[in-house]
């Protein structure tokens, strides 16, 4: 019975793809967007990153993992664990609300916002408080130069911009506001697969070094958030055609 159990656990920890899953989970830990999916696994005691199984203590590792997972499940379902408390935090809208750490996860070069309309709270602030109008309307008044064509008619200003604090974008599910410098967190809420590829360096361009520090670019560096489709550009000139006797003969004939 004991041997059967050990072998069963061995299968559990060594099935193919497990290492990749572990790596993925490790990446996720530092990223608040998917903190919710990680919350169940990353309970205070459930250290799934325990890699001792690689050193040969497979059985022990399996027991530790299963035990920890069970404990974690208990904590998550019955106790007020810290992860749970975080998700239940009421959404704050004051300017003092905690914000996502800018530039911590990805070294993204900042794209300066146009000076004429920022900071947004100069107009949408406490001094000059324009009333928030949640109605969708065609005439954008002072922002008339902005053409909103993002997902047809389904997306409109306040689907991304914070209605009560225009210096930020809509908050993450844990209440932290998203600054413009980290707009990829907001884009990733809808475009999850693209966000995943971008994090892995598959979608979009990367600069820096192939074996060292890499720079990412914000989604809005290439895609205007209001009209996101990539604009067509003029191609560079085509290559010269090779010399052919036929062509020379044609030219000679035309003269």
């Amino acid at each position: 019975m004991k041997r059967f159990l050990v072998r069963h656990f061995l299968n559990m920890v060594t099935y193919p793809g497990r290492r990749r899953l572990l790596r993925f989970a490790r990446n996720d830990k530092s990223e608040p967007v998917i903190a919710r999916s990680g919350a169940t696994k990353q309970s205070p005691t459930g250290n799934i990153r325990d890699r001792t199984y690689q050193a040969g203590h497979l059985g022990i590792a399996a027991l530790v993992i299963v035990g920890a997972a069970t404990l974690g499940w208990f904590v998550w379902s019955f106790g007020p664990g810290p992860a749970r408390a975080q998700t239940e935090q009421p959404v704050e809208v004051s300017p003092e609300a905690p914000t996502a750490d800018a530039g911590k996860e990805f070294p993204v070069p900042l794209k300066p916002l146009p000076k004429t309309i920022t900071p947004c709270r100069a107009c949408h602030g406490p001094e000059k408080d324009f009333p928030v109008n949640p109605q969708r309307r065609e005439d954008l008044l002072v922002h008339r130069n902005i053409l909103v064509n993002h997902g047809g008619v389904r997306v409109w200003c306040l689907d991304c911009h914070h209605p009560d604090n225009r210096n930020y974008l809509l908050p993450l599910s844990d209440g932290r506001l998203i600054p413009f410098e980290q707009s990829y967190l907001l884009c990733g809420k809808c475009h999850g697969t693209k966000f995943r590829d971008w994090r892995n360096g598959i979608h979009g361009k990367r600069g820096g070094y192939w074996n060292g520090e890499k720079t990412y670019f914000l989604c809005v560096t290439c895609h205007n958030p209001h009209t996101p489709r990539y604009k067509p550009i003029e191609p560079m000139p085509p290559p010269q055609k090779p010399w052919t006797p036929k062509e020379t003969a044609r030219k000679a004939g035309s003269h």
């Binding site: 892995n200 598959i202 361009k205 990367r206 820096g208 192939w210 074996n211 290439c222 990539y230």
Partner: peptide
């Protein structure tokens, strides 16, 4: 350590370059 020039100038980021022996490189992903 730099990227090839074609990777660097591609405006849409269609070109990817990396080390096959590094399991975390973009090329392996």
């Amino acid at each position: 350590g730099k990227y090839p020039m074609c990777v660097e100038v591609c405006p849409v980021g269609a070109r990817k370059f990396g080390n096959l022996l590094d399991p975390d490189s973009e090329i392996n992903r």
